[in-house]
Write a protein that binds this DNA or RNA. Structure first.
Length: 139
DNA sequence: GCCAACGTTGGC
DNA sequence: GCCAACGTTGGC
């Protein structure tokens, strides 16, 4: 199983909205970046991802699971980009902020700390465990 | 609100 | 196919 990180602005699509979709999940659309698209295509059903809020929050707020692998993004009229479906798994008891990630020696190599603009990022197993523990989960 | 970094686009 | 210009994003 692989791990990922999905970025969103809470003003446009938030963790709370994702939770309300429940088990049937929601399509993660709107990606318009080729690197991010490649990551979306690499996702498999059952993969897990951090749900990260940008803007004023800049923190990982929850965990989601991929429930449908990449298919054409209906919001992209040119048909070159894709989306996946995800469902909320659980929130982090304590959100992990960008500042914490940058301050932790084990996490400062994370794509999140190095390329904050990339909207879909890979996360290593070690980074996954570390962030989960910091967030109050056993992982 | 500003600035830096990055990705994309278009001209050559 | 390369490179410069431009626009967008996101952190501070």
């Amino acid at each position: 199983m692989a791990y990922w990180l999905l970025k969103t602005e809470p003003e446009s699509y938030s963790w709370d909205q994702q939770v309300k979709k429940g088990a049937k999940g929601e399509a993660w659309t709107g990606v318009r970046n080729f690197t991010a698209r490649d990551h979306l295509k690499a996702m498999k059903t059952g993969d897990r991802a951090f749900f990260y809020h940008t803007g004023d929050e800049k923190q990982v707020v929850g965990i989601v699971e991929v429930i449908k692998e990449a298919y054409p993004d209906a919001t992209d009229e040119k048909g070159v980009f894709v989306c996946v479906d995800i469902k909320a798994v659980e929130p982090l008891p304590t959100p992990v902020t960008l500042a914490q990630v940058k301050a932790d020696p084990k996490l400062k190599e994370m794509v999140l700390a190095r390329q904050p603009r990339l909207s879909v990022q890979p996360v290593t197993a070690d980074e996954w465990k570390t962030v989960c523990r910091m967030g109050g989960l056993k992982a």
